[in-house]
Write a protein that binds this DNA or RNA. Structure first.
Lengths: 356, 356
DNA sequence: CTGTTAGCGCTTTCAC
DNA sequence: GTGAAAGCGCTAACAG
């Protein structure tokens, strides 16, 4: 059952293919009567135009690629949501690629996207080879926007959240509450080297959160004790629980704990609760990301909120802009500011000024 | 900066375009020396073949569409994960569409997918107009697989989870524990009518869970009191909390509660805890879906697990199969079985046989 | 083993 | 206002 083409429609309406094309793309230049006849034929035959053919004709593709790191992480779902909304408004379609932190998968995906001649690529880069691959696509006219990976190069757009500021906000909040013995549980923060196994590389955001946190402590003349400074390989609940346990079972435990993401913080809450500590009186705990954790109702968690949906939405618009501007495009670097959301896990039941 | 084409490569390697094409698609039929020369040229020029052109040539598209209902729901993320893995293995790409429960968006997405000439569509249908749209795509050779929507029609593939069985498992579990006064908190279960506002329509899965639950109670000669049978418009935590509150504050509250999904169950846990009830001694609570709720550590929740990733993986493979078979395809209807995961919220600290 | 021809469905350009 | 021709990049079918 072959597809109806523009020529079938033309024949049915007694016009040329060109006229049908015009009805589709510039209806106003076609005479009213003709236009109606063509429209009827389109409906009768159930004609749907072929994107491949249009694309082949004029290069553009009406699709953008989105390469994320972990599809099961709600963070990326929310980001994807923002992207989808933004590009659909413009009639584009999103090709979803889950790199799953594998450099090999990421490269394969990029090749597929390149074959598809997508208008652009939004990517949370994993592999160190990625920027080079992206450059080829850029030269061919595609847009590229890196997310949460402030590239050293000035020749690419990126959109990111100011994690240094986020780290500062966290430290400042705990300092304001009077804490002076503050612990840190975070992911690994060795500076990534080009040769590193991508699976093991530290995320820039993790490094920056620590950096901002330490800077604010230093400003206040407060020291982070080595014993209160723990890093975990994976930033999950059980790792947070173990790390907090080690930290709490030592001589002089901290009175407050900043965790590099919310899952670590949940683990810490769990360890503290298991030890009979009262939150936040014995130990204040805060996280980062402000992820929605529907199960977490016993102790609402103070966190640093990132505007994730907005990040996705803005990045997608930037991408389309770049793809349209072509060579004349000025690469942009957009930095979103995170904000503190104070809840019971640090301020107790009384003072939830920002609580949700 | 125009793209390198197969002809540029041909010229550089001193062969015809056809030979380049063969190196790409059937390397063995090309002489070793020629093959190598062509490969070198491909690398030197950074050639990447154009999917639109191939597609236009032979109809096939190397892309499938995935239309989901709520991208922020982890359920769909896990499903998408399964789909992505399955189709990537075959060199396909996933076009992600978030209908957000809007019939209008869904229809628009389907049109875009049709224009893209995707090989097939995986869809959690929302609009009642959808089956008809899908039929046109089927006639044009695309595969279509409906998820969790056992179509009455035999002319479409579907993949689904046996929610009636799930409801039975839940009831049986609570009955086995000796409960006879059992409550139900569920989403709305009015049978959907074609004319209904899609936003208000009950999900088939919600209806089936109830159906199975009631059937097992009936088999055991146990009645569901009207006062213990509550439906909420939205299946979220706060709705569950309210519903459970109403149910618990009445005369003779149930000793066990089955909730139509895990979020409702979390709300119920919350309401019960707020009233000083001990779980599961004063009240046993169970949910459905077995979603991963990282924040929920105080009372691990008994639930009914759906093989969501597998569902996505299987559905995607079925889709590709259908697209390849063409007219000779036998439509398949696959029903997965859910399983009980017993945890503390019903069996207490001792007997977590399946606990995670 | 390799090359030539033709055409997939659409739209830009130029004519009428 | 409308039509005819040409070509986007690729590959099946048929030579050689």
């Amino acid at each position: 059952m072959p597809r109806t083409t523009i020529h079938d429609v033309a024949k049915a309406a007694g016009v040329s293919a060109m006229t049908v094309s015009r009805v589709l793309n510039a209806p106003d230049v076609v005479a009213e009567a003709t236009r109606q006849r063509v429209r009827d034929a389109i409906n009768d035959l159930g004609f749907v135009r072929n994107a491949s053919a249009r694309q082949l004709r004029d290069g553009r593709s009406l699709a953008v690629g989105l390469v994320i790191v972990d599809i099961d992480n709600p963070y990326f779902a929310e980001f994807a949501h923002g992207v989808e909304d933004a590009v659909n408004d413009e009639g584009y379609v999103v090709i979803l690629c889950n790199s799953a932190r594998s450099a090999a998968r990421e490269e394969r995906h990029l090749r597929l996207l390149e074959e598809q001649r997508v208008e652009g690529v939004l990517i949370f880069p994993v592999s160190t080879a990625t920027p080079a691959l992206l450059q080829r696509m850029q030269r061919a006219g595609a847009g590229t926007v890196l997310i949460n990976h402030r590239s050293r190069r000035k020749d690419q757009c990126w959109v990111s959240v100011n994690d240094i500021l986020g780290g500062r906000l966290a430290a400042q909040h705990l300092l304001d509450l009077g804490h002076r013995r503050i612990g840190l549980i975070n992911g690994q923060t060795t500076v990534p080297q080009p040769g590193d196994d991508p699976h093991k590389r530290s995320l820039l955001s993790t490094i920056d959160r620590r950096k901002g946190f330490l800077a604010s402590l230093a400003d206040a003349g407060v020291k982070l004790a080595a014993a209160h400074d723990v890093e975990t390989e994976v930033m999950g609940v059980s790792e947070g629980e173990q790390a907090a346990g080690r930290l709490l079972d030592r001589g002089k435990p901290p009175t407050a704990l900043f965790c590099g993401n919310d899952l670590l913080a949940v683990g810490a809450l769990r360890a503290a609760t298991a030890r009979g500590l009262s939150i936040p009186d014995d130990l204040a705990i805060m996280g980062y990301d402000d992820v929605d954790l529907p199960g977490l109702w016993t102790v609402p968690l103070t966190s640093i909120r990132q505007p994730i949906y907005d990040l996705g939405h803005r990045a997608a618009r930037l991408l389309l802009e770049e793809a349209r501007d072509g060579a004349s495009h000025q690469h942009q670097h957009i930095l979103f500011n995170p904000e503190l959301v104070a809840r019971e896990s640090t301020v107790g039941r009384t003072g939830g000024q920002n609580g949700a």
